[in-house]
């Protein structure tokens, strides 16, 4: 069974949280606002729970900052 891991590049992510929005609206609902603030007053997302690999977050990310990686079982 393929597992997925979400990686966020803090050098690119501006903390807009659109990934959290879309993950909870159309995806696995595992992304959440983390406590780590970005330079521009946003917050990095974090993954709590198992990502289902739908990649909606990748589709909506304006800054190419989030990547879903397949992790072998």
């Amino acid at each position: 069974m393929v597992m997925y891991r979400v990686r966020v590049d803090p050098g690119l992510c501006k903390g807009c949280l659109l990934c959290v929005y879309i993950c909870n609206k159309r995806g696995g609902g595992v992304l959440r606002r983390s406590g780590v603030e970005t330079l521009l007053g946003g917050f990095l997302p974090e993954c709590r729970g198992e990502c289902i690999g739908c990649r909606w977050c990748e589709r909506l990310c304006p800054d190419f900052a989030i990547t879903v990686e397949e992790v072998g079982d």
Binding site: L12, K14, L18, T38, R59, L60, C61, P62, F64, A65
Partner: peptide, 15 residues
């Protein structure tokens, strides 16, 4: 990173 504001649609359109 681009200079677009956080959550700006421009980045999504580029995507």
């Amino acid at each position: 990173p681009s200079p677009f504001c956080p959550g700006c649609g421009n980045g999504i359109i580029l995507n």
